[in-house]
């Protein structure tokens, strides 16, 4: 059981709730969503509570993450895009903290489930389409007709643009999901080698050194990936939201 790399993604019900035949139970996934949100929220809230003019270390962590996301969004969308700042910042913090929680042994990784990452991607896409249509109306569809395309090619180019637009939520969600899933499986498999080989006597223990070193290295890599995927998600969100702000380009 301990060596099964898929087991860590199992969802188990902690408090069974069923409404209208659907299972809305409070699960281990829900528990870690709550933990993620509470941890991130409490950290941001408590570290900034002193409102220090000269920030403490933890306060500067909160300020740095604020400015990091703010600069990212401003660079991608310009000042008009700053209305999306709470959304982008929430997404970044949520994914980052959820990923980091996933790195703790025996903890559940919320973002290793496709439905969660897909839901987050759909929040972005619905915001994009909703805001784009509201502010630009029909001009929003110029998004699918790039500037300066010859008339004959417009249907072709437009259909390609539509397909690429529709594949955005999929690529956005699958990228995060697959990275987290694959990383955790790899980690589990290599760690599994260590226990299996070391159970085979002295020769096995020597053989287990290599997978152990690999496990350590991959752990470091996974921390990087955890941050990087949160960053990539946020950056792509910014770039997509730029289309809502400036559809004609």
């Amino acid at each position: 059981m301990a060596e099964d790399p898929i087991h860590q993604f199992q969802i188990s019900r902690l408090i069974p709730i069923e409404i209208g035949g659907l299972d809305f139970s409070f699960t281990n996934s829900s528990l870690f969503m709550v933990a993620t949100v509470v941890t991130a929220g409490a950290f941001l809230y408590l570290t900034t509570s002193s409102r220090g003019l000269v920030p403490s270390r933890t306060q500067s962590v909160s300020e740095m993450s604020y400015e990091f996301v703010a600069n990212m969004l401003r660079d991608a969308t310009g000042p008009q895009g700053m209305r999306f700042f709470p959304l982008v910042f929430s997404l970044f913090m949520f994914i980052l903290v959820a990923n980091m929680f996933g790195m703790v042994p025996y903890f559940f990784t919320v973002t290793s489930h496709l439905i969660v990452t897909f839901a987050l991607a759909m929040i972005v896409m619905l915001t994009l389409v909703g805001y784009g249509l509201k502010t630009h109306g029909a001009r929003f569809f110029k998004l699918f007709v790039p500037h300066g395309v010859p008339g004959v090619l417009v249907p072709l180019v437009a259909s390609i643009e539509v397909i690429s637009f529709l594949s955005r939520p999929i690529s956005l969600s699958v990228r995060l999901f697959a990275n987290m899933l694959a990383g955790h499986i790899t980690l589990k498999v290599f760690a599994g080698f260590v226990t299996t080989l070391s159970g085979l006597g002295a020769f096995g223990v020597i053989g287990a050194v290599l997978p152990l070193l690999l496990t350590i290295a991959i752990t470091g890599l996974e921390f990087l990936v955890s941050f990087l995927q949160a960053y990539v998600f946020a950056v792509l969100t910014c770039m997509y939201l730029n289309d809502a702000v400036h559809p004609e380009h």
Partner: peptide
Amino acid sequence: TYPSQLLWL
């Protein structure tokens, strides 16, 4: 598990 995950998310 989707309804539960979506709701709690």
